[in-house]
Measured scan of single mutants.
Amino acid sequence: MEVVDPQQLGMFTEGELMSVGMDTFIHRIDSTEVIYQPRRKRAKLIGKYLMGDLLGEGSYGKVKEVLDSETLCRRAVKILKKKKLRRIPNGEANVKKEIQLLRRLRHKNVIQLVDVLYNEEKQKMYMVMEYCVCGMQEMLDSVPEKRFPVCQAHGYFCQLIDGLEYLHSQGIVHKDIKPGNLLLTTGGTLKISDLGVAEALHPFAADDTCRTSQGSPAFQPPEIANGLDTFSGFKVDIWSAGVTLYNITTGLYPFEGDNIYKLFENIGKGSYAIPGDCGPPLSDLLKGMLEYEPAKRFSIRQIRQHSWFRKKHPPAEAPVPIPPSPDTKDRWRSMTVVPYLEDLHGADEDEDLFDIEDDIIYTQDFTVPGQVPEEEASHNGQRRGLPKAVCMNGTEAAQLSTKSRAEGRAPNPARKACSASSKIRRLSACKQQ
């Protein structure tokens, strides 16, 4: 084909351009004929944790799935940006308080904090938690009735009371019990989460009196709706648990309003109706937990002794299953770290194939690490110290990083047969305790 000078094309009309061969290198194709290559998922490591896909996002930050490269346990990490926390009232204080509380709590029905990582340079905090497959609110939203069968609701409620009793025994008032803060594992274990607005009572406090509340409006008791200066913290949790039980068994809320002012007005009056299909035992329990006067409201001991709580409820309806993943529609909620794991395991070791967030990740503290002497050669063979940054567990980050890069360049065919977990650990520049 004859090559045409581009400067001469402006002298031709459209018809003349076609005659000189423009149609031979300008093609129009339908979008259905285009085959897009999927974007390669680059592996990203935060300390010893391999990052997966997004699980959810809230006002405080994002939650992603991660894999512990040492234990191969599935975890969830809450990623918090200090810049964003400053824009939220009491944001930083709530996060630090939640970390302090979770560090000393150990119960099967309370979410466990596994690790805390802090990135000084990017001003990011990573709260590594045990993995929960789904939230209770997500399960309720997945069915038209917006409720659980009585047998399933009873099982979840009993676990909620177990976890709540443990928190109260530790002198902690949750203040925000609701389905949105109750998570579930694949085995059906309920976990109380989000202790950001919780309050730890003084060890020598005479009672459970509280003065502040930041919980969700629909789950607040009349004493808070009416603006009382002080109130019983434990009875606030009992009320919120009662509203939660009402919601998961009926699909409704005892109090509603077009806006928060109308909602608080209705809560302050204390008038509500219980659907007739709840039955006398459940209705009596709800009335005891939603008692207007805090002094007359049920205690956890009274809830445990109630006939509806103690009764064994046979399954009359099919239980609400864990819904498919909202993004991938995966009904099994498979591990989202698998594509990243395959990338590390299947590809040659190259620095361009993975990302390490930083050479140094500070753990379990908000301060910069200490310094240790770096050896410097002298005339008599002895070495003197220069400062060298280290990880919180004493690992020399720069030395590990250099060693990792040197190993990656060394030709050794046997290394390709290593397991995925050992490869992740070798790529991680800074081991965590």
Rank of each mutant, 00 (worst) to 15 (best):
54 L>I: 03
167 L>P: 01
271 S>T: 08
15 G>N: 15
363 T>G: 14
381 G>Y: 11
75 R>G: 14
96 K>T: 06
216 S>W: 00
109 N>R: 03
146 K>W: 02
97 K>S: 03
121 E>N: 14
198 A>F: 03
179 P>I: 04
412 N>V: 10
176 D>L: 00
248 I>A: 07
173 V>S: 09
246 Y>D: 00
22 M>T: 15
12 F>L: 09
403 K>W: 13
395 T>L: 09
322 I>S: 08
324 P>C: 10
41 K>T: 09
366 F>W: 14
65 E>C: 06
410 A>Q: 08
346 G>K: 15
31 S>G: 14
149 P>C: 05
370 G>R: 08
37 Q>N: 05
416 K>H: 11
133 V>S: 06
123 Q>W: 03
248 I>E: 04
372 V>R: 11
101 L>V: 04
102 L>R: 02
256 E>W: 15
430 C>G: 13
192 I>M: 09
101 L>S: 11
71 T>G: 12
60 Y>C: 02
348 D>S: 14
343 D>F: 10
218 A>F: 09
243 V>Q: 08
246 Y>H: 00
421 S>G: 11
269 K>C: 07
422 S>W: 11
278 C>S: 08
324 P>A: 10
211 R>Y: 13
164 L>F: 00
362 Y>A: 11
138 E>M: 09
377 A>H: 01
161 I>N: 01
287 K>E: 15
285 L>A: 00
424 I>M: 11
108 K>A: 09
170 Q>D: 00
230 T>N: 08
283 S>P: 08
397 A>D: 10
159 Q>H: 00
218 A>Q: 09
116 V>L: 07
259 N>G: 02
113 L>E: 07
113 L>W: 01
225 A>R: 06
139 M>V: 05
273 A>T: 12
62 K>Y: 10
46 I>Y: 09
36 Y>S: 02
97 K>G: 03
144 P>Q: 09
278 C>D: 06
39 R>G: 06
135 G>K: 15
190 L>A: 02
225 A>P: 09
338 V>I: 12
289 M>P: 00
14 E>P: 15
361 I>W: 15
19 S>K: 13
272 Y>G: 08
392 M>G: 12
201 L>V: 04
305 Q>G: 13
7 Q>Y: 08
294 P>W: 10
408 G>N: 13
261 Y>T: 06
235 K>G: 09
57 E>T: 15
314 P>W: 14
374 E>W: 13
214 Q>I: 06
193 S>Y: 00
399 Q>H: 07
44 K>G: 02
382 Q>L: 10
291 E>H: 08
410 A>S: 11
27 H>S: 04
217 P>Y: 12
331 R>L: 08
311 K>H: 02
273 A>H: 05
37 Q>G: 07
425 R>G: 14
298 F>L: 03
372 V>Y: 12
291 E>W: 10
264 F>V: 03
371 Q>H: 07
315 P>Y: 09
183 L>F: 05
325 S>Y: 00
32 T>G: 12
143 V>H: 12
230 T>M: 05
166 Y>S: 05
312 K>E: 04
164 L>W: 01
244 T>W: 01
2 E>V: 11
209 T>A: 08
145 E>S: 12
49 Y>V: 05
109 N>K: 07
411 P>I: 14
300 I>L: 09
173 V>F: 05
144 P>V: 04
29 I>C: 11
263 L>E: 06
311 K>N: 04
413 P>M: 13
115 D>V: 09
326 P>R: 13
400 L>S: 06
207 D>R: 13
261 Y>L: 03
220 Q>S: 08
311 K>A: 15
95 V>T: 15
221 P>I: 02
183 L>E: 01
209 T>G: 11
133 V>A: 11
317 E>A: 13
69 S>Q: 01
99 I>D: 02
243 V>C: 06
286 L>H: 00
154 H>S: 02
276 G>P: 08
59 S>E: 11
185 T>S: 05
242 G>A: 04
83 K>L: 02
273 A>G: 03
223 E>S: 02
281 P>Q: 13
119 N>D: 03
379 H>G: 07
10 G>M: 13
218 A>V: 06
400 L>I: 13
149 P>L: 03
68 D>L: 02
423 K>A: 03
406 A>P: 08
184 L>G: 01
148 F>Q: 01
262 K>A: 09
356 I>V: 12
150 V>A: 01
386 L>N: 02
49 Y>D: 01
181 N>P: 00
284 D>I: 07
398 A>R: 11
350 D>H: 09
214 Q>N: 09
315 P>G: 09
95 V>Y: 13
406 A>Q: 14
284 D>C: 02
156 Y>V: 06
62 K>W: 11
95 V>S: 11
428 S>W: 15
167 L>H: 00
152 Q>L: 01
45 L>D: 10
417 A>H: 04
258 D>C: 08
4 V>P: 06
164 L>G: 00
36 Y>A: 03
372 V>L: 11
63 V>C: 11
260 I>A: 02
69 S>W: 01
234 F>S: 07
348 D>M: 05
11 M>K: 10
67 L>A: 05
363 T>I: 04
165 E>M: 01
111 I>V: 05
204 F>G: 10
266 N>L: 03
71 T>P: 02
273 A>K: 03
264 F>S: 03
135 G>Q: 14
49 Y>L: 04
160 L>H: 01
139 M>C: 09
175 K>F: 06
170 Q>W: 08
383 R>T: 14
293 E>H: 06
36 Y>H: 11
154 H>W: 04
314 P>D: 12
259 N>E: 12
247 N>H: 09
386 L>V: 06
222 P>W: 03
77 V>D: 00
96 K>Q: 03
159 Q>A: 07
39 R>N: 03
229 D>P: 15
251 G>L: 00
168 H>M: 02
297 R>K: 00
363 T>R: 07
219 F>I: 10
385 G>L: 04
365 D>Y: 11
365 D>F: 06
271 S>I: 07
166 Y>L: 04
119 N>A: 12
15 G>Y: 14
323 P>M: 14
330 D>L: 14
265 E>M: 09
179 P>H: 00
53 D>V: 03
30 D>V: 01
172 I>S: 02
161 I>G: 01
92 E>V: 06
151 C>V: 08
236 V>L: 01
391 C>H: 12
263 L>W: 00
319 P>N: 12
65 E>L: 02
65 E>R: 04
165 E>T: 01
399 Q>P: 10
219 F>K: 00
69 S>E: 09
381 G>H: 14
75 R>V: 09
140 L>N: 01
104 R>Q: 08
76 A>S: 07
362 Y>N: 12
431 K>Y: 12
262 K>N: 10
403 K>T: 08
167 L>A: 03
414 A>E: 13
83 K>Y: 07
18 M>P: 15
222 P>Q: 03
64 K>P: 05
274 I>D: 05
397 A>I: 13
28 R>G: 03
156 Y>L: 10
147 R>P: 01
300 I>A: 13
251 G>V: 00
170 Q>T: 01
161 I>F: 00
364 Q>Y: 13
274 I>Q: 15
398 A>E: 14
246 Y>A: 06
260 I>R: 15
272 Y>C: 07
14 E>K: 02
61 G>M: 01
61 G>Y: 01
295 A>G: 11
161 I>M: 10
140 L>E: 00
399 Q>G: 13
209 T>H: 10
390 V>H: 05
255 F>P: 02
372 V>Q: 12
216 S>I: 01
320 V>L: 03
88 I>C: 06
383 R>F: 08
398 A>N: 07
353 L>H: 11
390 V>G: 11
356 I>M: 08
166 Y>V: 07
194 D>L: 00
175 K>R: 12
220 Q>K: 03
133 V>T: 06
202 H>D: 04
206 A>F: 02
18 M>Y: 11
275 P>K: 12
227 G>C: 05
13 T>I: 06
198 A>L: 07
366 F>V: 11
367 T>R: 10
179 P>Y: 01
271 S>P: 01
328 T>N: 02
253 Y>F: 03
106 R>Y: 15
248 I>M: 09
348 D>H: 08
117 L>K: 10
401 S>G: 06
409 R>I: 09
41 K>F: 07
384 R>F: 13
125 M>L: 06
378 S>I: 09
135 G>S: 15
226 N>M: 02
397 A>T: 13
102 L>Y: 08
323 P>S: 10
317 E>Q: 08
201 L>M: 05
38 P>A: 06
145 E>T: 13
103 R>Q: 09
367 T>C: 11
428 S>C: 11
9 L>P: 11
193 S>A: 04
343 D>T: 13
151 C>S: 07
284 D>F: 03
154 H>P: 00
232 S>A: 06
129 M>W: 03
308 W>Y: 00
416 K>D: 15
428 S>A: 07
180 G>I: 11
109 N>S: 02
339 P>R: 08
100 Q>H: 09
349 E>R: 11
293 E>S: 06
48 K>Q: 11
322 I>E: 07
287 K>Q: 08
27 H>G: 13
274 I>L: 06
284 D>M: 08
429 A>K: 12
179 P>D: 00
197 V>S: 14
119 N>L: 08
359 D>E: 04
131 Y>G: 04
422 S>L: 08
100 Q>E: 09
